[in-house]
């Protein structure tokens, strides 16, 4: 068993994303275009799972998220999907929390709550 295989695969997927290789959707978040792989989005987000799992998701290659998250909250989540690391600061946590709620990423929502709670403790 190659115990670091899953993180190596994820690292390669992230490299593909950064180079725009096989990215099959452009997300318009706060007007900012972000390229990604539908397969990674669907694997990480209940919201994207419900959108892309059906046939309706097949032809979608540009997706705007009206009334959705702002880029400042969404970009850290996209990085998290491809790296397993969620970068939070007291300034960004509320926007990341809102975006994670919108994307139905419950485990991340709970982590954001824990972070915000901890940042209020003396």
């Amino acid at each position: 068993e190659f115990t670091r295989h899953s993180s190596d695969v994820l690292g390669n997927l992230n490299e593909l994303r950064l180079r725009g290789i096989l990215t099959d959707v452009t997300l318009l978040v706060g007007g900012q275009p972000l390229r990604a792989h539908k397969a990674v989005l669907i694997a990480c987000s209940g919201f994207f799972y419900s959108i892309f799992r059906g046939r309706a998701g097949v032809g979608v290659d540009v997706l705007s998220l009206p009334g959705g998250p702002e880029a400042g909250g969404f970009a850290p989540l996209l990085d998290f999907m491809y790296t397993s690391r969620l970068r939070l600061s007291p300034a960004t946590a509320p926007a990341v929390l809102a975006a994670a709620t919108y994307l139905q990423m419950d485990h991340v929502v709970q982590a954001c709550h824990r972070f915000i709670q901890a940042s209020y403790e003396p």
Binding site: I42, A43, C44, S45, G46, Y49, M81, S84, S89, Q104, M105, D106, H107, V108, A111, F115
Partner: peptide, 22 residues
Amino acid sequence: HEGLVATVKEAGRSIHEIPREE
């Protein structure tokens, strides 16, 4: 100055589980 960067390790589930095909 740059704020403190602390890393919290989360061992639990990170993302939803796609239901297995019945």
